[in-house]
Design a protein around this nucleic acid. Structure first.
Ligand SMILES: [Mn+2]
Ligand SMILES: [Mn+2]
Ligand SMILES: [Zn+2]
Ligand SMILES: [Zn+2]
Lengths: 138, 138
DNA sequence: CTTATAAATAGAAATGATTTCTATTTATAA
DNA sequence: TTATAAATAGAAATCATTTCTATTTATAAG
């Protein structure tokens, strides 16, 4: 919890009950959740809570490096805790239980070389989504 | 053009002026376009044209393997012609001119091995977006 | 412990891409 | 030529997301 509060301070974000509750939720549930999921789960403990606040906090936490944002099959926003904010890496999502796992391995240099040689283009960014079944669900 | 019309037949889609116009547009402009881009460009030649028709045709052509669908940074739908519908491959998008190029190279097996060994999970699918500047724009 | 201030929030409202609906038109096969 | 299901236009609905504004709150300084 402390490193996340420090990340808030580093990004000049005040430590509020709502922000702490959102972070806590993601620490307890290590899975992908959308704004409405988060809203639904927090509404129990914080009956006075606005959905726009959830959207805003999720965006702020993403910019602060605490969460990662992705789009699910239905093209809606999803977020998950990222425990390795600094080094380049990817994420594996379980199709059954939505659990997220860190993938500290990236092969992409080979693809970059291929493209820059064959297409004579400059590769600037890549994004990789990996899906499947986690060890418990398979 | 003929292989695309054959693909329509194979998918029990009638050959209509609207569908031919959409395919033609993507054959002439080898770039990513959204429904509204397509609508705007076709409206000149086909003044009677509905935006829902464009949405529907783009979806049908994607299911028929003629186009690929992707989401742009602004989370909106984008489409492009795919000239290699059968073999597994990826696509490079130019950030400046939106040109799409085929990338017939995929490294992913190494990532799969890493994940299946380290996380004991089953990898079922992956999606890779590659962006940069094409040979003309860089 | 106050107080001042900018930041954060709730709730209502707006936005806008995408989808649905329905009456009419059209491609296609017999 | 005709019958039929498929395709379409245009209007309307949907709904995730964003914007707006008045009120509340976290925080730092005195
Ligand atoms: Mn991570
Ligand atoms: Mn392709
Ligand atoms: Zn799982
Ligand atoms: Zn370019």
């Amino acid at each position: 919890m402390e490193p996340y509060l420090r990340a808030l301070k580093n990004n000049r974000l005040k430590i509020t009950p709502r922000r702490k509750a959102v972070i806590n939720l993601f620490v307890n549930y290590r899975m992908r959740m959308g704004p409405y999921d988060v809203y639904g789960k927090l509404k129990k403990k914080l009956p006075i809570l606005g959905l726009p606040t959830v959207y805003r906090i999720l965006d702020e936490l993403t910019k602060a490096g605490i969460l990662i944002q992705s789009l699910s099959e239905d093209r809606q926003l999803r977020y998950a805790l990222c425990t390795l904010p600094d080094a380049h890496h990817h994420h594996f999502t379980c199709r059954k239980c939505s659990k997220i796992e860190e993938v500290e391995f990236c092969n992409f240099k080979g693809v970059t070389r291929f493209i820059e040689k064959k297409l004579n283009a400059k590769v600037e960014a890549h994004q990789l989504q990996i899906e499947g079944l986690c060890s418990e669900c398979k």
